[in-house]
Design a protein around this nucleic acid. Structure first.
Lengths: 213, 213
DNA sequence: CGCACGATTGATTAGGGTCAATAATGGTGG
DNA sequence: CCACCATTATTGACCCTAATCAATCGTGCG
């Protein structure tokens, strides 16, 4: 399935809102963001895409993309053309189920982001985002000890948490000052994840949505 | 498919965060909300469920619900047990595709809610919510002329837009004062939908995600 | 009639935004 | 190796949107 290997540099749009979906991409390495913009330039990152996840299965049955996908780091991905993807799905029921399942988990993540943006304070939002990143990177082996690389700019983090860059910066300092995180040289270290989860009002269950049976 | 007809009064939880999903419900009439809460009581409605939509297909393949579903009005729905639903899906490919498609559209709505909560002002948020309600109720015949019933409390609207009740109330007044909406006796009237969409920075495309082909 | 819940208003406060400047960082070409 | 430039990160001052607190007013209902 890993034919069609492709690379992209950091800061590129892989696909934009309004584009038709003619292929499905599976990310092999790198971080991407799904984002939407308003006419006047306000921008919201609505989710991250990490290695092992698909880019566009999310709009596969729909006419066009409702959001854009940008690389936040250099990225390697595998591209599967629509026709081939469709025949894969048709020939393998469990594969189709796996993709549906990925969509459902993503939906759950999206809901958690809604309460993050709507009801958590700045500090809680950033703490929560870091907890989520840890929990999502761990199963794909991208957490070493209690650290991971944090390759994105503060602007990206601000757009993901619905904050201004200035306030995001101050919130990071607060998290550092309280010892909840260490962040230097593009490396995020969380020495006490459960303390950070407490600060984030992290719900223990939303990512543990392993498939039934 | 419409066996197992059920009724529920307003203000009931049909299913709660953490519950296993043993059946799938299809709403025939009434409004419901998907919501999540934080330990300290803060509450965010993450989406509405309208007639014609399913309740729990969203967590069907997952172990347990990541959110709760509450009725905001009296509701009539049809309930299909898990085993029966699975056999329906297995026997009819296009049905399975339809459910996947519903999940994808819901995902797109969820993303729009993220930018609503993260980047729109209070006025834009409320205006946007009303536009979305109109566009979602129209295809199921629940818009009469330029009006629909608005059966929910201001508290619900506040929880859906991430605002306090007080500020939501003031925002409604502002929308009324500018003539963008009329809201009395549980009836919402939008005389100029495109004007309201302008005020909401409404993206024209996110709900027009009709299926391909 | 009294009660509970929902809507509305006023006063005050606080969490974050905005603007503007400055300091690091990192990549590039000579 | 270094000067230069463009991002990115950080800081300070000030402002504004929306939250909070606390009444008050309706209104449907048993």
């Amino acid at each position: 399935m890993l034919e069609g290997m492709q690379r992209a540099g950091a800061g590129e749009d892989l696909i934009s809102e309004g584009d038709p979906v003619d292929s499905v991409r599976i990310v092999l390495s790198g971080w991407l963001s799904r984002y939407k913009t308003l006419e006047d330039g306000r921008r919201q990152i609505v989710n991250f895409v990490f290695p092992g996840e698909t880019c566009d299965a999310h709009a596969f049955l729909l006419s066009v993309m409702d959001h854009s996908i940008a690389t936040m780091t250099p990225v390697v991905y595998s591209e599967i053309k629509r026709a081939r993807f469709e025949s894969l799905l048709a020939s393998d029921r469990s594969l189709a189920e796996a993709f549906w399942c990925e969509t459902l988990v993503n939906n759950a993540i999206q809901r958690e982001w809604a309460i993050n943006l709507g009801r958590r304070t700045a500090l809680e939002r950033v703490a929560h985002l870091f907890c989520e990143i840890f929990e999502r990177l761990r199963p794909v082996g991208l957490i070493e000890g209690n650290s991971c690389i944090m390759p994105v700019t503060q602007m990206d983090l601000a757009d993901a948490t619905g904050l201004s860059v200035v306030h995001l910066n101050r919130t990071l300092q607060e998290l550092r000052a309280t010892g909840l995180i260490a962040l230097r040289e593009r490396t995020l270290t969380i020495s006490d994840l459960s303390a950070l989860k407490d600060a984030a009002l992290y719900s223990p269950s939303y990512l543990q949505l392993y498939r039934r049976g």
